[in-house]
Design a protein around this nucleic acid. Sequence first.
RNA 1: GCCGGGAUGGCGGAACUGGCAGACGCAGCGGACUCAAAAUCCGCCGACCUUCGGGUCAUGGGGGUUCAAGUCCCCCUCCCGGCACCA
Length: 911
Amino acid sequence: MPKEISITDIGADQSRSLPQHDRYYPQRIEKKWFERWSQDDSLYRAEANSTKTKYYVLEMLPYPSGALHMGHVRNYAIGDALARYMWMNDYNVLHPMGWDSFGLPAENAAISNNTPPREWTLRNIANMKAQMKRLGFAYDWSREVTTCLPDYYRWNQWFFLKLFEKDMAYRKKSKVNWCPKCATVLANEQVVGGRCWRHEDTLVEQRELEQWFLRTTKYSDELLGDLDKLEGWPEKVRTMQRNWIGRSEGTLVDFKVDESQAVLEEFQRVISKHLGVRKTEVALESHLADALSGLDHVERVMAIEEAFGIKVSEADAVTIRELSKNRGTISVFTTRVDTIFGATSVQLAPEHPLVAEFAVNDAALSTKVDVLIAEQRKAKEIGDIGAIEKHGVNTGRFAVNPYNGEKVPIWVANYILMDYGTGAIMSVPAHDERDYEFAKKFGLEIRQVIVSNDDSVSQELPFTPLNGKLVNSGEFGGLSSEEAIKKMSALAEKNGFGKATVTYRLKDWGISRQRYWGTPIPMLFCDKDGIVSVPESELPIILPDNVDITLTGGSPLGRVPEFVNATCPKCGGPARRETDTMDTFVDSSWYFYRYTDAHNDKAPFDSKAVAYWFPIDQYIGGVEHAILHLIYSRFWTKFMRDMGLIKNDEPIDRLFTQGMVIKDGAKMSKSLGNVVSPDEMIAQYGADSARLYSLFAAPPDRDLDWQESGVEGVFRFLGRVYRFVTATQQPPAKGGYTEAERSPSARNLQRALHQTIKRVSRDFDGRWHFNTSIAALMELTNSLTAMSADISSGNISPEDLAYARKTLVLLLAPFAPYLAHELWETLGEKESLLRAPWPKYDPALAAEDEIEIPVQINGKTRGRVTVAAGSSEEVIREAVFADEKIKSLIKGKQIVKVIIVPGKLVNIVVR
RNA sequence: GCCGGGAUGGCGGAACUGGCAGACGCAGCGGACUCAAAAUCCGCCGACCUUCGGGUCAUGGGGGUUCAAGUCCCCCUCCCGGCACCA
């Protein structure tokens, strides 16, 4: 059963044993309100049919690892403060929470503790939910989403069927990333520097597997273009997504493979063998070579036999036939087609299919290519493909540059990537640094075809800028690079040897996982009908319990015959179920839509509910999801829109990424042993202090350096607030104050309150620097405490004091809800604090009566004068020149200039 | 290499649009209360000089713009994060 946090455990605090009436005693207060909220949390619920403006605030749902850590507390404290602030500003707030509860840790726990994943996960959820409640987070639990339960994952399956229907999900055999520790495939997004995103020490391997893919690339352009619209997102995240999508405009150019040279060489070999001389001694006269190139291979063999009086063996004839085959074209992708007259070779990735063909009859080439492949793999494994030294092999074949008919050698090189572009490039050493380096090393020709328009610019090779003009480029000579790119692309398209195109780094999303604890993919394999989808009416395909989990031997579900064996819905014959499960990022790609209608069993959600709540007004979470979750969920949104299910193009209007929680210079982690448990914090200082400190110690977007002693500080602050509200003496009633009659002390009080209202509200509405909001509340509390003499002497009316107490409590409510609720009740307020109106800022009351203006002489502060607020330049000038100190300082000097910034400062420039 | 973010006291951090650098908090020092401690309250708290009035220097380094620069411009160093032989 779930282990609820025992509240009585928490209250045991022996060191502080003073009478409780004048002491802040969080354990007592928090216990009381915890119990009340446990009985009734209806105020945390979003309202149905509300006339208020909606506000959807969401924190990223956690993986139920077992217990909350301070990073969670910080994340949720930010969201909770915002939710409470919006409630107090009369919005209809949706603030839900759920569990991203499929995933590998549950399987690992199953193996090491012999606990079924389901049980382990649900127990963790119960524990973490109790912690969240203990921390006082105001979630609408009636909408809780748990992704590992069938009422949720059935809709993953439903979506998969829709994706399959629309040809947005497909099955393909391909090279995939494999993490040996996870014993499963990883998406490209889950590989970080060649290593598994979960296992920093584990290198990802490449395996060839049949996988389900989602066509994320269909939305490449939209995913990229719409980033410009997401103005409420951090620039950093948008940039990371732009880089990830990696759009680049360029030109595809087809180079025809020319075999005549290789054929000639083969003839040389054959002839030299027969004549018993070295290959180089066989001179093929050029006319013969030309003649050969026009013949088919049989005619070639006959021609050679006749000319040299030899008999070509059957085996050699076969080789010649192979070499004579037209091997088609090599398509290269380039962003600089303007440099193509400088292309002096074509370079293929070692794993390019053509390379294997070339190597079939060339053992030497094959061996060399294997070395290149090995080098490339190794580099990928270290995670630094740039670190390997450039290496290449000449295939002896040639390709024809379609722009000038020139034959250039075809090489294979270890720095060419198969998975970008076409896996082949044209090499232009004069105008590309990498090609230059390669050409130098292997003695390839370097031919400059772009020159600078500007003589003052250094033209040292490689000359790469785009602002030159073409030379040695036939009909294109003299054009600027930009013009040339357009014209040359157009020519390629017209003549059918290429076209302008766009290439992306983004790949389709491989979602198959060879694991147990995930959503079963609702597909069947039938010997007769092939791949068949499960009929919608049969959903959900339930993930079976009692499965033997091991990390070897493929998908655990494959060992459950009751699961695997099914009936083909088309032919009624036997069929085999897909035993892979879905990537857990599928779960989190649309969970926030489910919150709008969490109990719908007819559809993933009601479109009307989504139309009302979406987009999410404010999403809050760690920057580590900048690519993964945030790109998948944008994709999912676009797909659902195209299905007609929703209207919004993007799921999230504003995104906030909070910093990490650091301790002793490192990210808090179990392995480093520097974790601070929220439970300990709560036990010692209370939930309010834990929350408040996580907001106070640093601006939310920066990393937070956790210092135990800092918590002590906010705890003391809460104690001062508690004492001010509960223990300050009620002043004697004088009654009948008008605004004009207010004592200076009372004016000061009003001013302090309204200045604080302004500062705290500003932080919520703008930049979210809650550390300064809390500092403002501390300053307010300090000045209220300092006014105690004024209060007890009756200089402040009971009404003003009551307003001060009430305002302080209201301003504190988003940050320290337990104490605020307690004090609110102490003040005799009947209305719920969560719906009490946020204090309104009155500029007139916040205004200063008098201000002190610093007076600088030549930019250095030398004195100050006090004038009425809002004084004109003239008044200030008079006050400054009447000041004795200033007078003596400028005596005998020539005044060059007097700068007066009303309300700010005065600067007198003297000589 | 490219992109994004940083660098301010012993520490975490303030300083909104160029206008008193160091708010607020921690730690430290001194004091009050107390038999004592805890708790609480008050004062001091960047460096150097000082005739105790004040003065000089200080926001990673160097230059510049300006009456005035932590803030704007140019150059450089270092740190964090992301991407990276992407053709």
